[in-house]
């Protein structure tokens, strides 16, 4: 595997221009969508099958350094998790990990079972009615294989979205948190940078100015497949009970019709 690539989204630098969102649409030839009124400048409310980058506009009372209302901006994207629920869920192998550590959906293999949609802890993967397949951010797979960074990072005018080798970006992000804290942003923190943390670390990680839940991000997302072993064992227990019941009922007791009440 090549050295892991990453995107680092520093939300403290985002000005909400949505150049990333537009660049993503253009490069990936994503279709037009009807705008929707979300109560803020944000459009759309959630990721869709044609919106892979989404700038979130969040009004958070009390979250600014002075204790006032904070207007938080965050360019959200697929996290390209190291332990990716969508990848584990995919029964066709359409979802795969690239040599750069990113997670991609092969559109020629996906048959649209939608299990990945329900398995993403961040609500990223979306179903496209027209192609009948699951869609999400590709980390501009075509671009990174040709020595270019993702379109969103390229378009960002403030370097809020940075692209590079993961280890270098994490080191840089750590320093940025320190300087923000010195500036009074006491809740400044990284989200998904730690490879020992949740989901084995995110290859698209973030610098947040408030706690994750303020951004509607789960504080401690888990891999969905963690439940399989326990639930399967409990099911086997249920099978044993039901099997014993049937054995009792059907066993030949040699007299009468054997079908009376227990």
């Amino acid at each position: 595997m090549a050295r892991t690539l990453a995107m680092f989204t520093d939300t403290s630098l985002c000005i909400g221009c949505r150049a990333c969102q537009v660049a993503c649409k253009q490069w990936n030839e994503l279709g037009m969508e009807q705008p929707e009124w979300t109560g803020t400048y944000q459009n759309h409310a959630h990721f869709t099958d044609a919106t892979f980058r989404l700038v979130r506009f969040i009004e958070a009372p009390g979250a600014s350094p002075s204790g006032d209302l904070a207007w938080l901006l965050m360019s959200d994207v697929c996290k390209h998790c190291a332990d990716a629920g969508c990848l584990d869920a995919c029964p066709t192998g359409a979802i795969y990990r690239t040599e750069f550590g990113t997670v991609n959906i092969n559109q020629d293999v996906c048959n649209g079972c939608r299990y990945c949609v329900s398995s993403c802890p961040f609500g990223v993967v979306s179903f496209n009615e027209h192609t009948g397949t699951a869609r999400k951010c590709t980390f501009c797979n075509d671009r990174i294989h040709n020595g270019l960074g993702p379109a969103c990072a390229k378009a960002c005018p403030t370097e809020s979205i940075q692209f590079g080798f993961r280890d270098e970006l994490v080191a840089k992000a750590g320093k940025r948190v320190e300087s923000l804290k010195a500036m009074g942003f006491k809740d400044a923190q990284l989200y998904g940078a730690d490879q020992k943390g949740f989901l084995g670390g995110l290859n698209a990680f973030f610098l947040l100015l408030a706690k994750p839940s303020t951004y509607n991000l789960p504080e401690n997302p888990k891999v969905p497949q963690r439940n399989v072993v326990v639930d399967s064992l409990l099911s086997i227990g249920s099978a044993v009970l039901v099997g014993l019941g049937a054995l009792l009922a059907f066993r030949d007791r040699g007299k009468g019709d054997g079908g009376g009440h227990a």
Partner: peptide, 28 residues
């Protein structure tokens, strides 16, 4: 009879992912 319940519980969804006995219940 039972894997469909385990399938629901092995997702990121609330309620489904919290239901430990979904498979066992579907089996019964």
């Amino acid at each position: 009879a039972s894997y469909t319940g385990v399938l629901l519980s092995a997702t990121a969804q609330p309620f489904w992912s919290e239901a430990r006995l979904m498979g066992a219940l579907f089996l019964a």
